[in-house]
Design a binder for these strands. Structure first.
Lengths: 256, 256
DNA sequence: CGTCATCTTGAACATGTTCAACAGTGGTGG
DNA sequence: CCACCACTGTTGAACATGTTCAAGATGACG
């Protein structure tokens, strides 16, 4: 059922057919969500975890004054949240940015995975780690980068992540965001986003049209962004860890 | 050996004497680190995880231009990182802010804990979750709050966390930070920190002297910070989760 | 074809930065 | 014990980046 999840996890380890079958079995209730709908609301106690299958979602917080801060973007294959299982209630919202498809994974099945399918659990853990690395980069961007730099960083973040799940052509990315939403992610006003975006286009660094951005000069743009492509930690885990989980799984009941 | 860790984890679940003995057994190599030393450097592959026993540390990144962004503060009982185990190399540094004591936990012992002591593993997982909630709040602060608000937020963050491990008297917190370091955490310049700090003192909201901050009017200050105290998720996990791990542990070999 | 959201642009403004100078403070060695 | 040094904190003035407010243009969609 969940092609996206398998695709994402296979960045971390090679999935056997058996693994893929297992993932198919625990993902269920695939559904289509219209654009701009809250998927999980502040204060709720989510009973299942879910996976984005198609489309883009955000996690965000709204402050008392009504300002919004987007905490992260969720792309196909991303999980939300390995975490919320232990929390009593959500401290933020999750919403669709466009029409998307998602499916669910039961809390029980996640817990069981931890003990019955250590390799897959390790891959899930890994994807949580990657999310944290992304979140660290977000903090750096908001704390210590100027507007142009934040924008460039955003493009690369999304581009590399889309690319990692095979959803971006070379130097082109779909970005179904209004300028206000970009501002909410980067801690800037829509007006300023508009201006800086215009600059980047005029300088020939990017081109844009209808929710699509083309990176015209990646080298220069990456200099503007001041990042390298290592922070995503998309490469496989250290060998010893991988083999630890592999060995462990051989000793474990994999029958269900 | 590790009083701090047990103290912290007991916020999440009741630790039996056996649990405490187990934690003692897996923490080792307690050592004292002088102030302003890198504990784990960028690019390194950490072989062990560690726990802060006494004192304060930071995780930080340095940009090409030399600007620094502090990613998080690490207080006694905090782990660094449940995460790095799966990463090939560190994408940030960890350093001591003052003289501190830390001890280590072997990678193997962490992995074994996951399968042999599910309850403790759940508590470790929980503490990783809490760290993420803190990091979400950091993003909100940097993205959508003004300087006064960020400062007030920082005081509460550290205060509540210190309080949770029994290390803060009422409305007083030790904050062994220079104004430059506060700036590096909040995405502001030292000069501006100085000015806003002065404002807060003149308004009678706080008092400060020698690395110590007193919260004089918590109600007003919390309004300035625009946060509530729920985000730390210090309360226990949902009952069903707790009992799941409890049951699981009864079926598991706890002998070593 | 009308309506709503989004985008675009200008001008005045605010918050925070930069640069620079000096004061306090703690630690070190003579 | 004092003198010196380095780091931290403090303050002012000019400046820059990004915000706010406001108005109009464009575009998507029924």
């Amino acid at each position: 059922m969940s092609r996206a999840l398998a695709r994402k996890l296979s960045n971390f380890l090679e999935l056997t057919d058996q693994d893929k079958t297992y993932l198919d079995r625990i993902t269920f209730a695939r559904e289509t969500v219209p654009a701009d709908r809250d998927i999980v609301g502040f204060g709720e106690v989510p009973a299942t975890m879910f996976v984005i299958e198609r489309g883009m979602a955000i996690r965000y917080r709204v402050l008392r004054g009504g300002e919004r801060q987007i905490l992260s973007f969720m792309l196909p294959g991303d999980l939300c949240d390995l975490n919320v299982f232990l929390l009593k209630k959500m401290d933020h919202n999750v919403a669709s940015l466009e029409e998307l498809e998602m499916s669910r994974i039961r809390r029980d099945d996640v817990l069981k995975t931890y003990f019955k399918r250590p390799r897959i659990a390790a891959a899930l853990w890994w994807s949580a780690l990657q999310a944290e690395a992304i979140s660290r980069e977000h903090i750096v961007a908001l704390g210590r980068r100027r507007a142009r730099s934040r924008l460039a960083y955003l493009f690369f973040d999304i581009y590399w992540r889309l690319k990692a799940v095979g959803l971006a052509e070379d130097n082109v990315l779909n970005l179904p965001l209004t300028q206000a939403e970009i501002g909410d992610a980067l801690g800037l006003t829509p007006v300023h986003i508009n201006r800086v975006l215009k600059e980047l286009v005029e300088e020939g660094l990017i081109d844009k049209q209808r929710g699509q951005v083309q990176l015209l000069n990646t080298e220069a743009l990456q200099k503007v962004a001041d990042i390298d492509d290592h922070y995503l930690h998309l490469d496989a885990p250290p060998r010893e860890i991988a083999s630890y989980f592999h060995d462990l799984e051989r000793l474990t009941d994999v029958s269900n």
